[in-house]
Design a protein around this nucleic acid. Sequence first.
DNA 1: CGTAAGAACGTACGTCGTAAAGTACGATAG
DNA 2: CTATCGTACTTTACGACGTACGTTCTTACG
Lengths: 226, 226
Amino acid sequence: MPVNARTPLSRQRVLRAATTLADTDGLDRLTMRRLGAELGVEAMAIYHHVANKSDLLDALADQVAAEVDDPPLGAPWKEQLRHRAVETHAALLRHPWAAMLWVTQTSGVGPARMGQMDASLATLRAAGFPPTLMDRAFHIIQNHVLGHAMQAVTFAAQASAPGRDLARAAADFLARPGLDTYPELVAHVHWHLEHPSNESSFEFGLDLLLDGLERAFAAGPGGPKR
Amino acid sequence: MPVNARTPLSRQRVLRAATTLADTDGLDRLTMRRLGAELGVEAMAIYHHVANKSDLLDALADQVAAEVDDPPLGAPWKEQLRHRAVETHAALLRHPWAAMLWVTQTSGVGPARMGQMDASLATLRAAGFPPTLMDRAFHIIQNHVLGHAMQAVTFAAQASAPGRDLARAAADFLARPGLDTYPELVAHVHWHLEHPSNESSFEFGLDLLLDGLERAFAAGPGGPKR
DNA sequence: CGTAAGAACGTACGTCGTAAAGTACGATAG
DNA sequence: CTATCGTACTTTACGACGTACGTTCTTACG
């Protein structure tokens, strides 16, 4: 069977092929027919290893969550949350389609994502956060990670269309008519061209949030407001 | 012409019908054929008033941005940003499909959204923010608004499927097998069931960010780090 | 070798966006 | 009044898509 021309399909092989296909061609290019072609198989053969396309996408989304590893257990809550946020953010940037899937596929959250969320909540509870502040901290950090990843990824997609690079995309934008109505926006784009690394921007915002949460935590059992 | 059985189509009429169709049936139910049916017209007739579907969606997205009105001009920067953020957030919640469009349709940002972004940047510049901090402040707040809206909207969509309400959706989730592996997640869902209003959660995070930015601004011309 | 189970295939249906060509109609010109 | 023409809409068609269904092939075991 190892020399056999036809290695039988498997969920593993399907998911792996789907991941690389999405990584290289983009999520919208990932169709059952194309995925089948990539595997040397007709589209319908895939359905023996995957319930439907939504199931496949759910599995892909969860695979990305499985890539982020846990923070050191003994660390203080701030560092635990920070570690997980940074790791998750990095994983989402590694697979540009992942952020969109996390946002879209709400029904089929897989075990890896569930585990990540549960662990974050556990960290907050162990630190002694009261319920309201705990809920807010959880969602705020979630927002920051997902939001920043989405923004970075859609911006990158803009620049990675066939035959375009970042400078070209910016030039196209700056060539739009009537753009002089938005001088700040033009300046903003120019600034981004000169400062292409937005890596530290994510962590700056994250620390802003963590420090703010720490202050709110210290301020009182129910948070500083309401 | 008012009594005429057939009022001729117009961009206005098309956009209005598309908005209500998306509001009631969801963005995925908004197809050219269905929109045509809603207007008493075949699908292809719409293309006389809209370049293509992407153009239509861009216009819809921009309409939402046009709904948010400007903050008082004389107010301090924090209040200006806060006002715009809250208004934008509210507009995005009014039209559950809007957040997804803002995230997806990166190429066709319309004049209203451009104006909003330009105004936010202008506020920061007028306040004297240095370029780096200005960029970060802009993106961080943008993230929070869009991210929170998306989260709220997808959560609501979960509960508003035909024949389901919030309690039912939560019950379905809590009935998943193997859920005892995620006790914090279960507790989190329960907490959300007992505290359905997440209105203040958005503003809490927003103030966290604004206060943090203010502190970073006061700390030095380049921000406190790097 | 025979055979049965499971894997892969081929075909088909209904949906989508939209290109291209056709049709109806109201206004203007001869 | 008739011919012409631009506009508004319809008809038809094409190539994608996800996937239901029935058939064929492969392979392991007796």
